[in-house]
Design a protein around this nucleic acid. Structure first.
Lengths: 200, 200
DNA sequence: GTCTATATTATGATAGAC
DNA sequence: GTCTATCATAATATAGAC
């Protein structure tokens, strides 16, 4: 199962809107959505705050676009994983790699989608939460099937799911490509830890 | 090694300041520090915003108090663990239990200390980060000694450390005592997963 | 597409009566 | 210790010139 479909429309064409989105994601990660002002964003882009409104409708549109851009990277991948006939372990292995790839390639946006989604306004908020909930349910189903098939230990599936999903969180803050191990090494290390444990 | 010293001065005496701190922690977790207003806090306490200033100096004092309250729960525990002569595995086991206990007992404050510390102002911010950095360095040393002694697999210690620390994060959002497994079951499940892996 | 100027609203915090 | 009234500031967003 090769990783595909990770590219995102929103960061493909290098338009001004793309630039604003990337600057906003970086700022929202650093200071949080509420503490980041339109002036902050405008400063980094190199224009006046008022000029931003020629490219976007509102500050909240920036947040919503970022969160859905990340969500939309995971959804089609999960569909593929479910459709596949491989073992539970290789499905989980694939999802671990997927999370690490997306997080290291889009660290700022992943951080915003993980931590700032609360500030999305209805009705988009419900849509986002439903997307996330659906993803988690699919992941949990994979774990539960693995337990029934005897591939996985009988650890509570909710605990397993959230422990695994949480365990990637540090990457969005700490992973620096130039300082840390290469991504492939991180994938091997995290997979070893989650699948077989730290104990020798 | 029994868990001791988890009680906190700040939540022991039921004063008005205690109440304000608890309300603030809950609000900061729900909406983030920046999006939470003094009027929000005052509403939940049942007084006017101006009255809060008879008990606290500023909004930022609330944040700083919360973050250091949590930090100060971990520091003496880590000192004890280091001084102890037990095996690496039982030290890690103890620290896992410690994180789960503190997080389930003080979920809102842990969430704030983990996610809102960026808004602490200098010089307290540096002090907080140094405390955290020191804790992480101690934890990493334990892992590295375990690898050298042959108790742990040779997984990159930075990756191991942050993967383990991150893996508890879901508890601060998701753990509901009435809905989920009891804390002791969670401890067993997470320990099993991190120490020996999900694979059967 | 960017600017200056500004409307509108909300914030953290203080002063002073009770 | 709590209130009402208010200050000073800063936020998002819009209008209209260039």
């Amino acid at each position: 199962m090769p990783l595909i479909g990770l590219k995102l429309k929103v960061v493909n064409q290098r338009t001004r809107k793309t630039e604003i989105l990337e600057v906003a994601a970086e700022l929202f990660r650093e200071k949080g959505y509420s503490a980041s002002t339109m002036r902050d964003i405008a400063d980094r882009v190199g224009i006046e705050a008022a000029s931003l409104y020629n490219h976007i409708k509102s500050k909240e549109e920036l947040l919503t676009d970022i969160c859905f851009a990340i969500g939309n990277m995971f959804v089609p991948e999960m569909r593929q994983v479910i459709a596949n006939k491989e073992s539970t372990l290789s499905k989980i292995q694939y999802l671990i790699n997927l999370h690490i790839d997306i997080t290291t390639q889009h660290a700022a946006m992943v951080s915003v989608a993980n931590n700032e989604w609360r500030h999305i306004k209805e009705p988009k908020l419900s849509e986002f939460l439903q997307m996330r909930d659906n993803y988690e349910t699919c992941f949990k189903d994979i774990i539960e099937i693995g337990i029934r098939k005897g591939e996985l230990k009988n650890i509570d599936s909710t605990t397993s799911l959230y422990t695994i999903l949480s365990s990637f969180r540090w990457l969005q803050y700490w992973y620096k490509p130039d300082r840390d191990s290469p991504v492939d090494q991180i994938k091997r290390d995290i997979s070893e830890l989650l699948l077989k444990g730290i104990k020798k």
